[in-house]
Design a protein around this nucleic acid. Structure first.
Lengths: 203, 203
DNA sequence: CATTAGATGTGAAAAATATAACTATAAAAA
DNA sequence: TTTTTATAGTTATATTTTTCACATCTAATG
């Protein structure tokens, strides 16, 4: 699944460049995945290619939209308009992916003065906005201490998917989808790998 | 490996709360990993616990520092002082993890006027700073189009680990460690899972 | 039109990963 | 001191994931 997203990302870029067809090998190189793996993944979803000319880019993309059940754009919200919340609100790449940030929220009323395309509301208006825009997925970008409280609140308003940038594990029921993005971990994993290659085969 | 990072994150939090011992079960619950898996991971690294009293938190943390070859803090830099670059520069959690951002760089000289703990330099001073602080790992937080160029530049200055926030796959030699963090993917994977549970068992 | 090069498609093997089941042990309780 | 109990430690099993090998097909080429 992570791979399907990678494929789609690359394909959208290729499409923007006007590329019409790709080979499993090419797409693999773009995404850091082996050609065989690419083909296997496609065959999993019954996606057929042309046995000499590779796969059609537009066909692949539309197949992937199907996989995602993604009909048009998705409305999501961001809770916490601090540094991370703001950078997400201004992130260009979401447009291409049809991710539509309809609103952000912050407990601090002064944040409402922020000038931006994406509005900043106080926490009180969360339920209203979620209902109005049919939001199912939310991003938590608040400090550690507040994350669980915000999470509970969101679930109360019917949210069932959360991307959590706070470095805490949120307690939620089984049926809620949580994706924890821990920026420290992302960096440390690289630091670790680098140190490994430098201290090659330590006894 | 991802799990070791999760354990360490939880353990650091527990330590900050004054907790002295943990059970495999407890730590598993914190990190969303099964207790057996936790024990298996620890036994992999020859980490011993007490068969009734669980594991000592401080011992676990120091064992993990060993696993990471992490002696003291790591100096890293951020290239690109836009939204993402800035939020990373201001991210509190790095201190606890001993990740030390020594400098940020931006092509736009006006960014140097940013008031912050972490200095903003022009691209020209990159090599100098990398040398002075012994930096091995860098974060790329520049727009798509600039990412590959910045990457090549960094590698030229001896960087061998990169965390890339630009939604492109960077072309680098085998021995360079790259971690691509694609925020759109993180969000879309949740959107996908949510839609899956809603359209339960589609024929 | 036959040939060939360069792709895909797929089933089997291999490797990695996770789960389960069980044993051993230390601490607490009786 | 004996018994119980809760937890670590380990081996075996199952599952998932990846890789390999090769058959198959299609488009270009002479």
């Amino acid at each position: 699944m992570r791979r399907i997203l990678l494929y789609r990302g690359s394909l959208l870029q290729l499409q923007a460049l006007g590329v019409k067809r790709v080979y499993s090998y090419t797409l693999g190189k773009e995404t850091g995945i082996s050609a065989q793996q690419v083909r296997k993944d496609f065959s999993e979803y019954k996606i057929k290619g042309n046995q000499r000319g590779g796969y059609r880019v537009d066909e692949l993309i539309s197949e992937m939209e199907n996989i995602f059940y993604k009909k048009g754009s998705q409305n999501i919200i961001i809770v916490g308009r601090g540094n991370i919340g703001s950078s997400l609100a201004n992130y260009d790449n979401f447009i291409q992916r049809q991710i539509n940030i309809v609103a952000t929220f912050d407990i601090d009323p002064s944040k409402q003065r922020i000038r931006s395309e994406i509005p900043v509301y106080t926490m009180e208006r969360m339920e209203e906005i979620i209902d109005r825009f049919g939001v199912r997925t939310a991003i938590i970008a608040v400090p550690d201490m507040a994350a669980q409280k915000v999470c509970d609140q969101l679930l109360g308003y019917g949210i069932n998917g959360i991307i959590n940038f706070a470095p805490v594990i949120l307690k939620v029921s089984e049926d809620i989808i949580i994706n924890n993005v821990n920026l420290s971990d992302e960096i440390e994993s690289v630091i670790y790998c680098v140190s490994l290659t430098e201290n090659e085969c330590p006894e």
